[in-house]
Amino acid sequence: MSNEELRKQLTENLDEAEWEWLIPHVKRDAVIVVAKELDLLDVGEAIASDKVSEVQVWIEEAFITKPSNEQMGEWNNQREKRFNALIVEPYVLIQEKMAEAS
Score class of each variant (00 low, 15 high):
4 E>Q: 13
4 E>P: 00
5 E>M: 06
6 L>Q: 09
8 K>Y: 07
9 Q>L: 09
9 Q>Y: 07
10 L>K: 03
10 L>E: 03
10 L>R: 00
11 T>L: 15
14 L>M: 07
14 L>D: 11
15 D>V: 12
15 D>A: 13
15 D>P: 10
16 E>Y: 15
17 A>Y: 02
19 W>H: 05
19 W>Q: 02
19 W>R: 05
20 E>T: 04
21 W>C: 11
21 W>T: 13
21 W>Q: 11
21 W>R: 11
22 L>Q: 08
23 I>L: 11
23 I>A: 03
24 P>F: 04
25 H>Y: 15
25 H>V: 09
26 V>N: 13
27 K>Y: 13
27 K>G: 05
28 R>W: 09
28 R>V: 13
30 A>E: 10
32 I>Q: 00
33 V>S: 06
37 E>N: 14
37 E>A: 11
38 L>S: 06
38 L>A: 05
41 L>H: 08
42 D>C: 02
42 D>G: 02
43 V>C: 01
43 V>Y: 01
44 G>D: 01
44 G>T: 06
44 G>I: 02
44 G>R: 08
49 S>E: 05
49 S>W: 04
50 D>T: 08
56 Q>S: 14
56 Q>I: 10
58 W>T: 05
58 W>Y: 06
60 E>W: 08
60 E>K: 09
60 E>S: 02
62 A>I: 12
62 A>W: 14
64 I>H: 03
64 I>W: 07
64 I>Q: 02
65 T>R: 04
65 T>M: 03
66 K>E: 15
66 K>T: 15
66 K>Y: 15
67 P>M: 04
70 E>W: 11
71 Q>L: 14
73 G>D: 08
74 E>H: 12
76 N>Y: 10
76 N>K: 03
79 R>A: 03
81 K>L: 09
82 R>V: 12
82 R>K: 15
83 F>M: 04
83 F>T: 02
83 F>Q: 06
83 F>S: 07
84 N>S: 12
85 A>Y: 03
86 L>F: 04
86 L>N: 01
86 L>A: 03
88 V>I: 09
88 V>G: 01
92 V>G: 04
93 L>Y: 06
95 Q>Y: 01
95 Q>E: 11
95 Q>P: 06
96 E>D: 13
96 E>G: 00
96 E>W: 11
97 K>L: 12
97 K>G: 08
99 A>E: 14
100 E>A: 02
102 S>M: 00
